[in-house]
């Protein structure tokens, strides 16, 4: 329960919400029965809070922009090309990278739940998990993109990719003009998470 900083009398007990009680019940039983190790749970939480995030994907994108060979490998065998940078782990085993071009704009959704390429993008943003995005990105992708501030020419075909528990997608956004000669680090800095989901474009602002 939240503490408001005021002095509390200690003549009444603490209160856990029903959800908190359920989590404690499940976790304490799993630990006692040896199904999970509490230390491993702590490591996982720490990892996904602090270490795994869209900066990983941004480095993949920057390298692909910078090195034609790497880009070809990434589009051919994304899992291996991404793993070569050290980004491995759950939900990233079977990756496919989709290249955005002036002709084709790719965007990614998981209509059923929230499958998402954790090793390169971290955990999904709330809107990705929410029903409106899951439903509407398939039926009205242009209007969803507009809500993200993305307007594409009518001549650009929009392809929406539905992730599954087996296959995870990441978008390789278009490299913006005006970034010739930039270092990989500089390029990585302008790559946004949304651009790798396909709900954003990368702009050359540093």
């Amino acid at each position: 329960m939240p503490h408001d900083g005021h002095h509390h009398d200690h003549d009444h007990g603490s209160e856990l919400t029903e959800t908190e009680l359920r989590v404690r019940a499940l976790e304490s039983l799993l630990v006692e029965k040896g199904y999970v190790d509490p230390a491993a749970l702590d490591v996982l939480v720490e990892t996904y809070e602090k270490n795994v995030g869209p900066r990983n994907g941004a480095r993949v994108v920057a390298k692909a922009w910078d090195e034609a060979d790497y880009k070809a490998w990434l589009l051919e065998d994304a899992s291996a090309a991404i793993a070569s940078l050290g980004y491995t782990g759950r939900q990233g085993e079977d990756m496919i990278v989709l290249e955005n071009t002036p002709e084709t704009h790719n965007m990614v959704v998981c209509t059923l739940c929230s499958c998402y390429p954790w090793p390169v993008l971290g955990l999904p943003p709330t809107w990705y998990k929410a029903a409106p995005y899951r439903a509407r990105s398939v039926s009205q992708p242009r209007s969803v993109l507009a809500e993200f501030g993305v307007t594409l020419p009518d001549t650009t075909e929009i392809r929406v990719w539905d992730s599954t528990a087996e296959t995870r997608y990441m978008v390789l956004p278009m490299r913006p003009d005006g970034t010739d000669g930039w270092s990989t680090e500089q390029l990585a800095d302008i790559v946004t998470r949304d651009s790798m989901i396909g709900t954003g474009l990368v702009e050359a602002v540093s």
Partner: peptide, 18 residues
């Protein structure tokens, strides 16, 4: 999360119900 610089809050997203 280490994503502050990657996430530019977009008011349009809020306005339109996402």
């Amino acid at each position: 999360f280490g994503m502050i610089t990657l996430t530019r809050p977009d008011p349009a997203v809020l306005r339109n119900g996402l």
